[in-house]
Write a protein that binds this DNA or RNA. Structure first.
Lengths: 334, 334
DNA sequence: CTGAAAGCGCTTACAG
DNA sequence: CTGAAAGCGCTTACAG
């Protein structure tokens, strides 16, 4: 076995196959007119030399990189990995690859962005809710389409694919009402996001219109440990709530732990809980949390579709999709 | 405000600044000799035109892409996101960007790899334990260095940075012995990995040499739900174990849930549990799991350092690092 | 269907 | 310190 040259070029392949370099190029371009015979010769030569077209050289002439920038969150939420997984493999199906744009909120933002734009990504998928707007401006400046995944940063104009958070909030309120909840609260984290606000608004307005009572909003934290103290305050109140809709499953679990372990409350008898996200822990024996499931697979597919369409058709139409989030009833509601 | 041209080139900048194109190029190359004066002229022009050097064109001449392929796991384990985060920002500090190589175990493997090699990544960091060897072979063929992060695929020759799993296993055994555990088992998942085997070996051999009793190994699943039944079998045994070292925190939590909720066992009184990974849930009120913490930050830093060194010095020395994993004692051990 | 040639936007010896 | 020119490995009109 002879060792193939580390990096064969189309020229090398051409020489070995006895054709011109442009012919080799055509062979690797889908839809070009090449005879079966030369095609086979070229493939054979390419195989011998272990040839792969150089994507950089291609980008230089075609002016598209087939690279999508992926802005991803800096938190450790159990779902994000799956998200990345889905987006990235969906991208691959369409012939694109994903370049990571890590986004640290507390970073000297100016540094990481320019870096990434040296690679001329064809588009950006943003799966982070908490980053600032400079990225959007930067993209606009370079005419790079961006689609927001499962969230929308306020004050930005871009396509997005999200779950219908408002409707989810309404559904939660209806369930509480049907299950006899008298005093409800919306327990949320400290960072306001658009999708979270939607959930809150849907929940509060629906609960009020149904019961004529106001659902209070309590701001704790998206971090389990940091949320604990606020939760203790809530459960110590004289008129303790008997129904809590939580902004995330994570918060819901903090609530359940404190309620059961420190206040000796029974769930759902003394307290009904609904979460949001359907993280893996939601179906654990100890939690069995009623929650909302987002269709991440479809969210991924749709956001990739949008970005690819915008790139290939050079169409800057803003697309905003809102997919239903399904209520999963488990054991924390009656 | 005038709209800057979407994609200014060094030529455009040169014209505006009144210098040659090569001078512009030098200005953006660290360590080139350019006078302060022309440097400023060029920077000004670049700013006006919103110029960014085109990384693809650069790659074409320098023959390095400043891109690192990142193979990441297909599971939803809570730690992986943090891992990605750390590696990717560490990479950024060194002037590299990360391209995602999603790895589906059940994929027509041949399809996704070649795709990625069209981008000529300078190196690969593999953070997935379960993928097959073709990637390694592919990398070898193209002379691309790879370093394995926190795991090692058996039968591959490549650098790696891992925690000292054997020592962790020993530590767990010592703790059990000191705490009076009489009957110990190692509870693991279904997919054998090198690091997991190390943990098991360290635990079993140490427990035996300490107590003269054998520690049994039970194979359940890395998936919470799938692990449940095997756990029920274990706890139903006549001589139920009083100490279980789990391959992951995830399994440990499945064990705790079943033990407490279905068998009414008290932890740590009736059963002592040690996990591995220190996932966020380990410090939740309901678990307070004693476990081992891997220094992911350092693992990330070291693996990036190795890959960058190998690239820049074109040095193919295999580096194998083994960092200590710290035992975090919480409430599931006495 | 195929080849020769120009060009994509850089870097890098080579002169000066 | 600076400029003119070659070259990196492709794609893409343009001829034939």
């Amino acid at each position: 076995m002879n060792i193939p040259k580390a990096n064969a070029t189309s020229k090398d392949v051409a020489k070995l196959a006895g054709v011109s370099q442009s012919t080799v190029s055509r062979v690797f371009l889908p839809g070009s007119s090449v005879s079966e015979k030369t095609k086979n010769k070229v493939f054979a030569a390419a195989k011998t030399l272990n040839y792969r077209p150089n994507a950089f050289a291609r980008s230089l002439t075609t002016n598209e990189s087939k690279l999508i920038g992926l802005v991803f969150p800096d938190t450790d939420y159990p779902l994000h990995m799956k998200t990345l997984q889905l987006i990235s493999s969906e991208l691959q199906k369409q012939g694109y690859s994903a370049v990571l744009i890590p986004w640290q909120v507390d970073d000297e933002a100016l540094h990481s962005i320019p870096n990434i734009f040296q690679y001329r990504v064809d588009g950006v998928i943003a799966a982070s809710a908490t980053f600032n707007k400079s990225l959007y401006e930067e993209c606009a400046e370079f005419n790079i389409p961006v689609v927001q995944f499962a969230r929308v940063v306020e004050g930005t104009r871009s396509s997005h694919v999200v779950s219908d958070n408002y409707a989810a909030g309404q559904t939660a309120a209806k369930h509480f009402h049907n299950n006899g909840v008298k005093s409800a609260i919306y327990l949320t984290g400290d960072i306001p996001t658009f999708t979270n606000n939607e959930r809150k608004a849907g929940f509060c307005s629906e609960f009020e219109s149904l019961t004529n009572k106001q659902a209070h909003v309590v701001e704790a934290s998206f971090d389990y440990t940091e949320a604990l103290d606020k939760i203790r305050v809530v459960l110590s109140q004289v008129n303790r709530p008997d129904g809590v809709f939580c902004a995330t499953d994570n918060i819901a679990m903090a609530l359940m732990d404190v309620a059961r372990l420190e206040f000796g409350l029974k769930i759902p008898d003394d307290l009904q809980v609904i979460g949001f996200d359907n993280i893996p822990q939601a179906e654990w024996l100890n939690y069995q949390l009623s929650t909302f499931n987002q269709d991440f697979k479809r969210l991924a597919r749709e956001s990739v579709k949008i970005i690819v369409d915008q790139i290939s058709q050079n169409d800057s139409t803003l697309v905003k999709l809102m997919l239903p989030a399904n209520f999963i009833e488990r054991k924390t509601t009656r």
